[in-house]
């Protein structure tokens, strides 16, 4: 089992005050947290360092959260994305689920709930990666192997 500290979380939100504060609080709860302030930044970030879980706002300047989610799922399907928004409607929730979002939370969210969800999401990611390996032919699923390797 890995240490909690090693769960890599990327917070994506244009509300700097909010996202920084939340980052501090999550760090206090032994998570690795990085913050970016819009969709583009988020996408360029995950191309360099792949987080385990992304906490994503929907209404942002530039790329909309939903677009970002779609991109992420194309780039790295294993990364679990939790939507955390103050604007979400039921339709957004459905759409997010359809695009492979892990969960849909509304601001203001309880910190303990959020942490719990992040952890769930992390385990989900691990599970999926393992399943992928199990079903994959030797050397076919590089991404999955890479993940497993890393986890080991």
């Amino acid at each position: 089992m890995k240490k909690k500290k090693e769960i890599k979380v990327l917070l994506v939100d244009d509300e700097v005050d909010f996202v920084d504060t939340l980052a501090q609080r999550l760090k206090m709860r032994e998570l690795m947290v990085a913050t970016v302030y819009d969709g583009e930044q988020a996408l360029s970030f995950i191309k360099k360092i792949e987080p385990d879980v992304i906490v994503l706002d929907l209404k942002m300047p530039g790329l909309h959260g939903m677009e970002v989610l779609r991109e992420i799922k194309q780039l790295s399907p294993h990364i679990q994305v939790i939507i955390l928004t103050g604007h979400g409607t039921e339709k957004d929730e459905e759409e997010a689920k359809r695009l492979g979002g892990f969960d849909f939370l509304r601001k203001p969210a309880d910190i303990d709930l959020l942490v719990a969800k992040i952890k769930e999401a992390y385990w989900e990611k691990i599970e999926r990666a393992m399943t992928a390996i199990a079903f994959a032919e030797e050397g076919e699923l590089d991404t999955a192997r890479k993940i497993i390797k890393k986890e080991e």
Binding site: F18, T21, Q24, R25, M28, G86, K107, A109, I111
Partner: peptide
């Protein structure tokens, strides 16, 4: 309600952080 949620979230996190710090 939508518009209030964001500032409410900031208050929530700031206050939460304060509580976190206080506890430590």
């Amino acid at each position: 309600a939508h518009e209030i949620n964001n500032p409410l979230a900031i208050i929530n996190e700031k206050a939460g952080l304060m509580q976190d710090i206080l506890q430590m």
